[in-house]
Amino acid sequence: MSERIIAFRDALKEAISEEMRLDENIFIMGEEVAEYNGAYKVSQGMLDEFGAKRVIDTPIAELGFAGIGVGAAMNGLRPIIEFMTFNFALLAIDQVVNSAAKVHQMSGGQFTCPIVFRGPSGSAGQLGAQHSQMFENWYANVPGLKVISPSNPYDAKGLLKAAIRDNDPIVFMESEVMYGDKGNVPEGEYIIEIGKAEIKKEGTDVTIVSFNKLMKVALQAADELAKEGISAEVIDLRTIRPLDFPCIVNSIKKTNRLVIVEESWPFGSISSEITYQVQKHAFDYLDAPIKRVTGKDVPMGYAPTLVDAYLPTVQDTINAVKSAMYVA
């Protein structure tokens, strides 16, 4: 497949549009998706191509349109529900957790809920406390859901196509600050399997695990560490539930050290679960306590100094790695 550089938002748009061309039962619904062409232009041009029946603007009523999506999915359609941000999806979380995730089990397997809830998660600059939260760990706690959080345009397209074709409910998390990111997305059809992490950079001294936009921090830290002669292996989780623990454990068997970088608050985070699984399955391989770099344990403040103090940085990651390696 030949190289082609496109933006993250266009990779998502291609994934949705290609699938909608294949299956009449797929529709996209959300705030500003149609006439405004998407709050972040993911759905640019879709109204023109697919019409108002399949590209549907909603009122600001997250609980209502999430529930309409669930009912439609139970009755034979394949909805894509766009949240302008998952910060707003808290209003709809009852439908995601209590309806979409549980109806297959509650009905003894009779009903399925093939639905994709997607939109950006996490912070995006100086947006204040209510627009800056990560939710991967909230949804990843829920049996019945699958949670995907890609870090680049290539993965975003391949994973979103997989999500749309999947018969289970999917929570697909993007980032406002990644929509303009450019990356290689080859022409032609490809699907990325849900539940598989990817080793983005091989290394021997320490394993760094991250996902979504903090993959940039992880990779940059690895580059800086390389200059100091420290070889870091960097893993992009890509899917949060089911999480590819074997990939992490196999890496630790080689590197014997682990640093986890994520944007969410530390309590009950993805790093918490990874840490449990690693001590359970690779205890004897660890040469140092597992380190993590997370968002600070506070709501994010508005001022630039407070944003900087809140978010994990490349330097934080380097420091964590050095701590895990017992070097100053």
């Binding site: 439609a72 009755n75 009852d94």
Partner: peptide, 20 residues
């Protein structure tokens, strides 16, 4: 289409069934 345990949650779901 069930039997739902969260008061009012079946209301948007019912509209979604009609939507389909």
């Amino acid at each position: 289409f069930g039997g739902h345990g969260i008061v009012g949650a079946q209301i948007p779901m019912g509209a979604g069934i009609a939507f389909a």
